[in-house]
Amino acid sequence: MKLLALDTSTAGGGVAVLDGDAVLAEWILQSALTHNRRLLKAVDLVLGELGLTVRDLDAVSSTVGPGSFTGVRIGLTTAKTLAWALGKPFVGVVTLDALAEPFGFTRWSVCPLIDARKGEVYAARYVGDGKGAVVRTSDWEVLPPRVLVEKFEGPTLCCGDGWTVYREFLMERLKEQVVEAPAPYHVIRPAFVGACALRRLQRGEADDPAAAVPLYVRPSEAEIHLGRAGRPFEQD
Results as ranks from 00 to 15, higher is better:
residue 56 D to S: 00
residue 56 D to T: 12
residue 57 L to Y: 10
residue 64 V to D: 03
residue 64 V to E: 11
residue 65 G to M: 06
residue 66 P to D: 07
residue 67 G to Q: 13
residue 67 G to L: 10
residue 84 W to M: 15
residue 85 A to R: 11
residue 88 K to L: 06
residue 89 P to V: 00
residue 91 V to A: 04
residue 95 T to Y: 05
residue 99 L to N: 00
residue 99 L to Y: 09
residue 100 A to M: 07
residue 102 P to N: 05
residue 102 P to H: 04
residue 102 P to F: 02
residue 103 F to W: 03
residue 103 F to A: 05
residue 103 F to M: 00
residue 106 T to Q: 01
residue 106 T to K: 01
residue 108 W to V: 06
residue 112 P to Y: 01
residue 113 L to H: 09
residue 114 I to Q: 04
residue 115 D to M: 00
residue 117 R to E: 04
residue 119 G to N: 00
residue 121 V to M: 02
residue 123 A to F: 10
residue 123 A to P: 00
residue 125 R to Y: 10
residue 125 R to L: 12
residue 126 Y to Q: 07
residue 130 G to F: 08
residue 131 K to P: 04
residue 133 A to R: 15
residue 134 V to C: 12
residue 136 R to Y: 09
residue 140 W to L: 14
residue 140 W to Q: 14
residue 145 P to G: 01
residue 148 L to G: 09
residue 148 L to N: 03
residue 149 V to M: 12
residue 149 V to F: 06
residue 150 E to A: 12
residue 150 E to G: 03
residue 150 E to C: 06
residue 150 E to F: 05
residue 151 K to S: 15
residue 156 T to E: 06
residue 157 L to T: 00
residue 158 C to V: 14
residue 160 G to K: 05
residue 160 G to V: 12
residue 161 D to A: 11
residue 161 D to F: 10
residue 162 G to L: 05
residue 163 W to K: 07
residue 164 T to H: 09
residue 165 V to L: 08
residue 166 Y to T: 13
residue 169 F to H: 11
residue 170 L to N: 02
residue 172 E to C: 12
residue 172 E to L: 10
residue 175 K to P: 13
residue 176 E to R: 15
residue 176 E to G: 14
residue 177 Q to P: 13
residue 182 P to E: 12
residue 182 P to T: 11
residue 182 P to D: 07
residue 182 P to M: 02
residue 185 Y to V: 01
residue 186 H to S: 07
residue 186 H to P: 01
residue 187 V to D: 02
